[in-house]
Every structure is written in structure tokens, then in C-alpha cells.
Design a protein around this nucleic acid. Structure first.
Lengths: 146, 146
DNA sequence: CCTTAACCTACCAATATTGTAGTTTATTAT
DNA sequence: ATAATAAACTACAATATTGGTAGGTTAAGG
């Protein structure tokens, strides 16, 4: 149940871009240095993010990346869905990579896994890059105390 | 962010045991057949569950397993924590396998990961084997609709 | 003492993870 | 033009995890 470095680095890269927003294009080199992440590895993460239209890029001198959308319009759920493939805890409730299961009708646990997915999606889709910049957690997670 | 077969099989094994509770000891062979899971693989999952006192076992003729506690006292969180090691999405917020991170003080995302863990823990700790038998989802997950 | 079934140990193939390394292409300043 | 810069692309690889299989050992009951 771990989130891979790919997802975590992607999130940190985007938060970094959000922070230095308005300073033109930011080179990967600078993000890599600030975030202490291998630049070469970040290079591999960028094309994954580019499946969606999150980034604007410019090559060459003073090139780099910047956010194509404002930070309050990019959710953690969106970022992780791009990098992790899906946030579904099981393949049998995955929209993209759905794998047929012969026991589906019988399965007494399917129900609760769907519930888990719903809870995870709900939380992550409620947090934006802007929220992270402002260092605030989703209200609903704070309210949820037994 | 996938739950491994180990965790899923463990849960299904325990739900199966809960269902056939009161019929004495249930042989792994029977669980394996009903659940269509390799018996040999289940054999490896049992000792993991036995880190906690969930099961009673008996060897030899008419031996097998049964629940040591009633189904409403065993939560999904407990089962998955045993098999998956921890439900924490990152090592830096793991109680057992905590890994030191030099960026901890700086980390602007730590916050939201902690929130995620809280949401996952909260959901899974609220569901018991009995709930699964009765095919009902936690009320809070049903309430959570936008 | 024979059958049953849990228990234990070793091994293994496939895949995912977490990178490194080197080359190529596009952009801009001089 | 051309040199510098930085993204983009491709290939490789060590390591860990996953998802098992195989075989032998121990305990309990009839």
C-alpha cells in the first residue's frame, strides 16, 4: 500500500513549480537541486505528467517548465492518478486496468474495497497544490476524529 | 497503491472462517477449495496472522483453524496491518518501519500524507469481519458523498 | 502405527522499483 | 552561424517485491 517515489517526486516537483510560479520557466536542474531528487529521474517523470495538460515546457536557454493551470485547479488525486496509474487498491475495481475476476458475483469483500477506493479518492481529490502551499489539510480529514 | 494478494487472501480466509464458525476446526484444504486459493500459499499467510492472536489451530485428524475472537472484534485494519506490514502510504510516516528522512522539517507534503494515512486507517478500522459477513459497508463511507 | 493436517524451509520466475548513462533535438544569446 | 543550454528520448541494470511451487517434518487422533 505504498505510494512510489514516482508519485511523491511528481507531487513535490509540482508543488515546487507552484511555489516559483510567475518566475518564468523553471529548469529541472533547479527543481532537482532544491528537492534533492535526481534530475535524470525527474526527466522520466515529466512525460508521465504530460499525459495530462498540467505543464508548459520550453527547451533551450532559459527553458524549463511551468504550470499550465493555476495551483488551486490541480488536485493531488489527479497527480497521483497520472503517476501511479490508478488509486484503486485492487485491479478488480480499477477503471483503467480492470482485470476480470471470476469470483466477482460471490465476492463478499468487493464491497469494502470499493469503499476504500472511494475514501482514498475523496480525500486526494479534495486537496489542491494551493492547499499544500498554504500548508493546510482537507477539512474533512480533520473532522474525522473518533 | 495496491493491496497484495497476501492481504486480500488473508481477509477472505478469515471471512470464510467467520462464516463457518461453530463447525469446529476448518481445514485449510477446505478454505483453499472454497476460495480458490492455493493451499500452499495460504500456509504461508497463516503464520503472518499468528503474529496476533486471531486464530486457534489444531493439528492432525480433523484439525484446522478457527477464529480465536468473535468476528465483530476483528477489523479489516488489523488484518491488513498484519499482512501488509503497515497501512502507511510512505515509510516516513510508518510506525513500524519508519525510515528517517533528512527533509522532514522542510517537507511541505508530509502533512497531506499523514492525512491520507488517517483516512485509510479510519475506514479500515471501522469495518469488522461481522460487517463483511452482513455485507454492509461502514456508515461513514456511505455518508461521504459529495 | 497409520492417516491427516498443520508447520517449516528452501527455492524461483516474473515484475516493479529506482535509478544511471549517453545521445539527440530544439531554443536562444552572442 | 554557432555555442551554450536544457528538454527529450533510449537503453540498461541492480535491487526488492510479488506470488507463488516443492518437499520434508512434526503433532494429534483413530
Amino acid at each position: 500500500m505504498r505510494v512510489s517515489t514516482k508519485g511523491r517526486y511528481a507531487l513535490r516537483m509540482l508543488v515546487d513549480l507552484a511555489e516559483y510560479q510567475g518566475e518564468g520557466y523553471i529548469a529541472l536542474k533547479d527543481i532537482a537541486k532544491r528537492q534533492e531528487i535526481s534530475k535524470k529521474y525527474l526527466e522520466q517523470i515529466v512525460p508521465v505528467l504530460n499525459k495530462s495538460r498540467i505543464l508548459q515546457t520550453n527547451r533551450g536557454f532559459q527553458g524549463g517548465y511551468r504550470l499550465a493551470v493555476s495551483p488551486e485547479k490541480i488536485t493531488m488525486g489527479e497527480v497521483l492518478r497520472l503517476t501511479e496509474g490508478s488509486l484503486s487498491p485492487l485491479a478488480c475495481i480499477d477503471d483503467d486496468k480492470y482485470i476480470e475476476c471470476s469470483r466477482r458475483e460471490d465476492c463478499s469483500t468487493l464491497y469494502v474495497w470499493q469503499g476504500l477506493k472511494k475514501v482514498i479518492d475523496g480525500y486526494l481529490d479534495g486537496i489542491t497544490l494551493q492547499d499544500i502551499l498554504e500548508h493546510k489539510r482537507e477539512s474533512y480529514s480533520n473532522d474525522y476524529v473518533i
